[in-house]
Every structure is written in structure tokens, then in C-alpha cells.
Design a protein around this nucleic acid. Structure first.
Length: 852
DNA sequence: GAGTTTGAAACT
DNA sequence: CAGTTTCAAACTC
């Protein structure tokens, strides 16, 4: 799609150029022989025609006549302009350079468009190929792309700036084409990493496309807007380009990226970002760590800004994409405000914390950011600093990181306190314990005295750390010194092997490296922090579900439990007692609840609830004020007793919410419709059930649903409230709305939007129906993997529904297809899923993308 | 620290 | 797709 447009655009611009001159003057006048004569005599007149020429009357005339589409001539022309340029021309050099290409083609307006196109082109190119399509958009000739980069470099802008532009261009090209790795390269590794990055970007791009597609018509606008915004004189071109390039991210990550992209000087350092991304995306943790070390100031600065910003301490709420169980990611909060300011993502792997400017987390963890685990020890924080702070390069970064860590620590401390009060989720408690010396961590500590290692510690003996058995490998990290593995190949030296193996695994299961747990929780950063420990993603669900038989999902054998998430329908566990949410048959639970309700609940109460429900149901999903915050889930611990089958039901909806992007919810009316339908269908039942079920003791658990801060507050208030009933009713109503509506987009959903990374499950009408019919389905939505699957013609949900118990997820082959992504905004979200680490990280993966 | 248990991952 | 084996973490002692 983009390619055609991009190509067409240039042509259009050309036409315009030709036309404009004539247009400027009345045809009659132009036609007049006198005019021609005059024009021949004085070059000035031609200038009139072209807006560009206007700036340079002297130069204008010839160009107008002979304007060649080619950029080079134009470029030169512009260069001259720049030199002679008046105040108007004094746009940031970067900007100029950026515009040059555009301007060459024609009007300033067109320039904006061209930017957009470039953005698109870049994105499109993502698709893989080195195709010059991206260049085409900007440049008449593919070769010119290189020129453009060069031109930019030649620009007066400081090296950083130039680099930024170049980097952008190069990166864009590299990403799209895989070209100019040298540019990006600082070292071979850097080059490889970059190439990988480019690949990843390509993978991600589909997301953008999708997202854009969501906007459908809006997409161009988005791009345009962004371009226009970034291309503003004040902005560096690089930003614009980056922004565009990152549009996907943008869509996904929102504006946050801007900040990220821009370095202190205001220029975006693509390399830094790339590195960051790499670190995030890189399946190989070590490389990532290394890259992290290499993070350039810009990236750091961005991080810092995000950190130190108005919401300095605020930890980005986990957007959603799950990481490996062992790794924790804190994506930036979805909140627009937060998100905008904190596009960066905190990623915690093992004990290390990574602060990523790029939303995309490593290939393993899609940037989208899923919190699989929350590591919360001061030690870890310290370690994080170590990891984050790359060494010497960035004092700023280090400072920022330190601040960030401190903030986190503070929050963590607070959270820990809260936790104690509330009863920390087992996870957090465990984590803390582990850090403190829980047996489990003791072991790890033993293995690795220092937490410094970003990577998890493994103890593999036979797998050479090249299988998913290896946590390090599964998490996309290289094994570290702390690892006690034998014959380990999961090391930078064997990067090729690692990549190949990874690819193989991905070929079998594209989601193999995807976060195992999708977090739907959107707890506000502050809340999440405070509650952080507590906030286990109640809404989160394990993508595959567990298969526990003996542990009753009460031990870490259970991945769900380990991830602090409740068991969902996808789980095949037996005797599930998962404190975070029991897996039960929705219908079964429902029946029970109904029975109970009939007996216990008074009609009046029910009617009240119904009112609630109806109101909620009818209210647009977006409007649903309170989605239970994940944090509330933490309270679950307190209410462990209460855990009811119910929870599952309730939670699933939450998760579904989380999965859904607010945009989708908002954007797609069908969601609301479906939601309404579902609600209507289920309303009575659900309401009754909820009412009946909601026992004072259970309320808290039910409240768990991932929600916004407000929700969280709400939950807390509720918990605190002696008037359990009222709170219960509210909660219930909310829950009902969630459960019934399923996809009801809580505020959290909005947050999710902000972070494109978070995979959003698209709910089709059928899906919604299913969801409404069965709570189990709701769980389905929650799953991380589903998103990708959703992309596929047959949504994962369906698969799960049909065979939820499947251990192995058959990856949707289609998820990568960009065209599909465009179909619906939700698809956009889904696309984000594909971005999961496993898919993108490796260049080879690009082929996978192409396959689709 | 060694041994056992457990369930995911891998294999057939 | 289901069943089995392999594996390494989690757990117990």
C-alpha cells in the first residue's frame, strides 16, 4: 500500500510543481507572448511560480522550468538556499535537510506529505526488503536515498544532528533495507545488532501499519500530523523522520517516543534508540545488555527525561506484553500524559532493570511491555543501575538511571510497606524474599553472587542453553558469568548459533519467545509502583496456561503462579488453587453463583446491581470509569480465601480489557456494540451471579481487575470501606461490566493504547459474543499470544476456545501480514504482538515476516 | 548441597 | 494431536 502511494506521491508532487508555476500566474497572462518574453528575460518571474523558488528569486526561475524531480539538483538548490536563506529558510538544518527531499518534490505542503510518506515508506519498507521504496517516496531515485543521507551529513548541523539525520535516514534505510549497517555500526556487533534491529523494526512496522490501518483513513493523518509536528522548524528532521519511522511505535507508543527519540540537543539518536531497542529486543540478553551499556546519551537523556519528567518516579505501567516469566518489563504507562513523557520502558530482566527508550522491548519481550514478574528489591534496583548505566558513555544516563532507580526504590519501599499492610502478592513477596534470601533466590545468589548480571541465571547442563528450558535463552539473554550452565552456547561468541537456534524455535512456535504472560494491568505508574509489588497482573494471563496437576498452581512450578497471574481457561491445571485467580469453568461457576444468588441475594440488591450493570453496559466501554486496577489484584492475597471461581470470570474480563486497546475500544463501535450485546445477553445472569457471589470476603478478589489508578484507588477505598456491600456492588457492577462486556475498555485500555507495544487483543464481534457467552473466553483475550494469533485469520481465541488445552500454540502464520493488519485498528494492536521478541529480533526473522 | 518433585519443553 | 521423554527449575531434606 505504502509503496504505491509513495510512488504516486512523487509523481503528484511533480505534477504540482509544474502546475504551480502556471497556477501562480493567470493563464492568460502566462500565455501572452509578452509574458513569455519577459519570463525569458528575467528569471525572477519563474520564482513566483514555485513556493520554494520564492525564497530564492534569483535561483528560482531556472529550476522552475527545469525542475527535475531528482533530489540532487534540488538538494543543491536547497543548499544554496540555506546558505542564502533568509530567516524563513532558517529551519533547523536537520529539518531543512529533511525537507530538502520533500521540498525538491514541490510544495512545502507536499513536503509534509512526503514526510508522511517517508514515514510510511520507512514503515512499509519494514516489510523487509531493502526495497528502495522508502527512498522512492522521498527521492526520485533510490540512489538518492543515500544521497539524502549524505546531504544531511554534509549539512551544517552539528555532527550529532547530522548523525541524527543520517542515522535516521540510514537507520530507516537499514531497517527497511538493511542497508548502511555500517552507518549504524560502531562495531561488527553493533552492526549486527542494528541489522537485527532493522529487522525487528520491520516486524514492528506492520504494527504501525496496522495501527495506522486502524485509523484507516486516519493513518495518513497520523503520519502527516506527526510529520508536521516533528517537521516543525523547531524540530529536528531526524526527529520527524524517526518519529515517522517510529510511527508504529508512535501509534503504539504514542508521543512518548518523541521525547525518547530526541536527545538533549533535541535530536534523536537513532543509534541509541536502536541500541536500546536491541537491548530490549535482542533475544540475546547479553548483547542487549551490552548495547544497553552503549546507550547513547540521547537515549539516556530521553530516559532521564521520562524519568525525571513530571512523573519522575512514575514507573511506566506495564503495557502489556509479557516477557519471559523471568523477565519483567515495565512498559511506560499507557497514559497519554505519562506515556508521552515516558515513552521509555523499564525492563527488568532477572534482577536487572532496563530502562528502554524504545517501547519495543527486545524481541523476546515485545516492547509492548509485559510485566511477567516484578522485581522489587533495592538490590535489584542497584543492579539495574549498573545494567542501565552503560558505563562511561553517559553520565547523564547514569544519573537518570540512578534517579530512576531511587525513585523506584522509594516506590518499591512504599509498595513493600503497602504490601505488608495489604498482604503482598506472593510474587512480590517472593521476589522480595528472593532478593532478601528466599531459598529460591538464595540459590540464584549462590550461583551468582552479584546481581549485576542482567541475565537470569541458569543451570542448564544438557541443553547448552539453547532451548527454552534455559531461562536465559528463553528470556533472550545471554548467559552470564553467574550462570552455572554447562557447555553453554548462549553467549555472544556463539551469537550465530543462538540466533539460528532461536529462529528454529520460532519457526516451530513463533510465540515461543513471546512473553508468557500478558499483562492486562494498566495500573498507573505510581500506583503500580506503590502497589507494584502487590500488583500482580491480576488481569494478566499466561499465554498458554499452565498444566499443573500436583502443585495446585500454588507453587512456582506453575507458570501462572510464578507470573503472579491467575489461571485462565487456557490452563489445564487440576485442582487449581491459584491465589491470583482460580481456573474454573465459567459456566460451572456461573451456575453456582446463580444458585447462590437466588438464595442469598435479595431482589433489591440484585435490582440495584442490575441497574449498575445496565448503566455500565450501556455506557461506552471507554466510559467505564473504573476498571479494577491490577493492583487491586494484590489485595487478592488478602482475599486469598475469597478466591472464587468467580475471580476467574471477573478477571478474564479485566484481562480482556487490558488486552484491548482503548483506541480499539473507542475507535471501533463494534466493540461497544458487541459489548452491549453481550452485556444484554448476559446481563441478567451475570448480575445475579455477581451479586450472589459477591460475598464480602470475595469482593476484594473480584476487584482485582486491572484498572487505572482511579480504579486502584477505588479498590483500595473499597477494601478499606467497612461498607462492603456498597463497594461490592460497585465492584460487582464493574466486574459485571467487564465480564459481560468483556472487552470493555477501562481507562487502562487507554493506557494500553499509548503503548503500542502491548499486544491488544482484537475482539471481533464473534469473539465478543463468545466472550460474553463464556467467561473463559474472556481469559482467552487476556493471553498474550492470542494477539498474534488474532492476527491470523483464525484468532487465537477461537483456537483456545476450541482447544484451550493445547500446550503448544500453533503460531498464526498470518500475523505478520501487514495487509491484514490494516484491516482493523485492532489488528493493528495485534500486529504489535507479532513484534514479540522472538519474531523480530533476528534478521532472519524478517523472512518470516515476508512469508506472510 | 544433594536429591526429589514438578511441569514445561521437546520429541515421537 | 496426543503421548512420552527430556530438561531444568522449584522444592525438600
Amino acid at each position: 500500500m505504502d509503496t504505491p502511494e509513495s510512488k504516486s506521491t512523487p509523481a503528484n508532487t511533480r505534477k504540482i510543481k509544474l502546475i504551480n508555476p502556471s497556477s501562480s500566474d493567470s493563464p492568460a497572462f502566462q500565455d501572452s507572448p509578452v509574458f513569455n518574453y519577459i519570463s525569458n528575460l528575467s528569471p525572477i518571474q519563474p520564482v513566483k511560480a514555485g513556493p520554494v523558488a520564492q525564497g530564492f528569486p534569483g535561483l528560482a526561475s531556472p529550476p522552475l522550468v527545469f525542475t527535475s524531480p531528482r533530489i540532487n539538483s534540488l538538494t543543491n538548490f536547497f543548499n544554496r538556499k540555506l546558505q542564502s536563506s533568509g530567516p524563513n529558510l532558517e529551519i533547523s538544518q536537520d529539518h531543512d535537510s529533511c525537507q530538502k527531499e520533500e521540498s525538491d518534490q514541490g510544495d512545502s505542503v507536499k513536503l509534509v506529505r512526503s514526510d508522511q510518506k517517508t514515514c510510511n515508506a520507512e514503515k512499509l519498507p519494514l516489510v523487509p526488503t531493502y526495497s528502495s521504496s522508502g527512498c522512492d517516496d522521498f527521492l526520485a531515485d533510490p540512489g538518492q536515498c543515500a544521497n539524502s543521507s549524505q546531504i544531511i551529513q554534509s549539512g551544517d548541523a552539528p555532527p550529532s544532528l547530522d548523525g541524527g539525520c543520517l542515522m535516521k535516514l540510514d537507520i530507516g534505510n537499514a531497517r527497511a533495507v538493511g542497508l548502511n549497517s555500517s552507518t549504524l555500526q560502531k562495531s561488527k556487533r553493533g552492526a549486527q545488532a542494528k541489522s537485527r534491529i532493522s529487522v525487528r523494526l520491520v516486524k514492528n512496522e506492520p504494527r504501525h501499519l496496522i495501527s495506522s490501518s486502524e485509523c484507516s483513513g486516519a493513518l495518513p493523518r497520523l503520519l502527516t500530523d506527526h510529520a508536521s509536528e516533528k517537521c516543525q522548524p523547531g524540530d529536528s528532521f531526524s526527529e520527524a523522520s524517526n518519529f515517522e519511522r517510529g510511527t508504529l511505535r508512535r501509534c503504539l507508543f504514542d508521543e512518548s517516543q518523541r521525547n525518547y527519540s530526541a536527545d538533549e540537543s533535541g535530536f534523536w539518536d537513532p543509534i541509541a534508540n536502536a541500541q536500546i531497542q536491541e537491548s530490549v529486543n535482542m533475544p540475546t540478553g547479553k548483547t542487549g545488555s551490552r548495547q544497553m551499556n552503549n546507550l547513547s546519551k540521547p537515549a539516556v537523556g530521553s530516559c532521564v527525561s521520562s524519568i525525571t519528567g513530571n512523573n519522575p518516579v512514575v514507573i511506566p505501567k506495564p503495557l502489556g506484553i509479557g516477557l519471559h516469566l523471568n523477565s519483567v518489563v515495565y512498559p511506560r504507562s499507557t497514559d497519554s500524559a505519562i506515556g508521552s513523557q515516558q515513552p521509555s520502558v523499564l525492563r527488568v530482566e532477572g534482577k536487572k532493570l532496563f530502562f528502554l527508550t524504545n517501547n519495543q522491548s527486545d524481541g523476546k519481550v515485545d516492547a509492548s511491555n509485559v510485566i511477567e514478574k516484578v522485581l522489587v528489591s533495592s538490590e535489584e534496583l542497584d543492579q539495574h543501575q549498573v545494567c542501565l548505566v552503560p558505563s562511561s558513555d553517559n553520565t547523564i544516563a547514569s544519573d537518570a538511571i540512578e534517579q530512576f532507580n531511587n525513585a523506584i526504590e522509594t516506590k518499591l519501599d512504599a509498595s513493600s510497606t503497602i504490601t505488608n499492610e495489604i498482604t503482598l502478592s506472593s510474587d512480590l513477596a517472593e521476589n522480595n524474599e528472593s532478593s532478601l534470601g528466599s531459598p529460591k533466590k538464595k540459590r540464584k545468589k549462590i550461583s551468582s553472587s552479584t546481581d549485576d548480571d542482567t541475565t537470569k541465571r541458569c543451570n542448564c547442563r544438557k541443553t547448552k542453553c539453547l532451548k527454552l528450558y534455559c531461562d536465559c535463552f528463553a528470556a533472550g539473554f545471554y548467559c552470564g558469568e553467574s550462570c552455572a550452565c554447562v557447555g553453554c552456547f548462549n553467549r555472544p561468541e556463539y551469537e550465530d548459533t543462538v540466533l539460528e537456534t532461536r529462529q528454529q524455535i520460532e519457526s516451530r512456535n513463533p510465540l515461543a519467545f513471546a512473553p508468557k504472560v500478558m499483562q492486562t494491568v494498566t495500573a498507573s505508574p505510581t500506583i503500580s509502583k506503590a502497589v507494584g509489588n502487590l500488583s500482580t497482573p491480576s488481569s494478566a494471563r499466561h499465554k498458554r496456561g499452565c498444566n499443573c496437576k500436583k502443585s495446585m498452581c500454588l507453587k512456582k512450578y506453575c507458570e501462572c503462579y510464578q507470573a503472579n497471574v491467575g489461571c485462565s481457561e487456557g490452563c489445564r491445571c487440576e485442582g487449581c488453587k491459584n491465589i491470583y485467580g482460580i481456573r474454573e469453568d465459567y459456566n460451572f461457576a456461573r451456575e453456582i453463583m446463580l444458585k447462590r444468588a437466588s438464595v442469598e441475594t435479595s431482589e433489591g440488591a440484585i435490582s440495584v446491581n442490575n441497574n449498575f450493570v445496565s448503566s455500565r453496559v450501556h455506557s461506552p466501554p471507554n466510559l467505564t470509569p473504573t476498571t479494577p486496577a491490577l493492583q487491586c489484584s494484590d489485595q487478592k492475597k488478602n482475599a486469598l480465601e475469597s478466591r472464587l471461581p468467580f475471580r476467574k470470570f471477573l478477571q478474564s474480563p479485566d484481562s480482556s480489557h487490558d488486552m484491548l486497546t482503548s483506541e480499539e475500544n473507542l475507535a471501533s463501535p463494534r466493540n461497544s456494540q458487541n459489548h452491549n450485546e453481550i452485556l444484554e445477553k448476559n446481563k441478567c445472569m451475570d448480575v445475579d451471579v455477581h451479586d450472589a457471589e459477591i460475598g464480602p470476603e470475595n469482593i476484594e478478589d473480584r476487584l482485582v481487575p486491572p484498572g487505572d489508578e482511579s480504579l486502584y484507588a477505588h479498590c483500595s477505598s473499597q477494601s478499606s470501606n467497612t461498607d462492603a456491600k456498597n463497594s461490592k456492588l460497585r465492584n460487582i457492577s464493574q466486574l459485571e461490566s467487564f465480564a459481560e462486556s468483556g472487552p470493555v475498555p477501562p481507562s487502562s485500555s487507554l493506557r494500553w493504547r499509548s503503548s503500542p507495544i502491548t499486544p491488544i487483543t482484537q475482539l471481533t464481534g464473534s469473539e465478543l459474543k463468545d466472550f460474553g457467552t463464556g467467561s473463559k473466553h474472556s481469559d482467552m483475550f487476556e493471553d498474550d499470544t492470542p494477539e498474534i494469533l488474532k492476527h491470523s485469520s483464525t484468532p487465537i481465541k477461537s483456537v483456545k476456545v476450541t482447544s484451550p488445552n493445547k500446550k503448544r500454540i500453533s503460531p498464526p502464520h498470518n500475523h505478520m501480514n501487514p495487509s491484514e493488519s490494516l484491516k482493523s485498528s485492532r489488528k493493528f494492536v495485534l500486529r504489535a504482538v507479532p513484534s514479540f521478541p522472538p519474531l523480530t529480533p533476528y534478521s532472519k526473522n524478517s523472512s518470516v515476516v515476508n512469508r506472510e
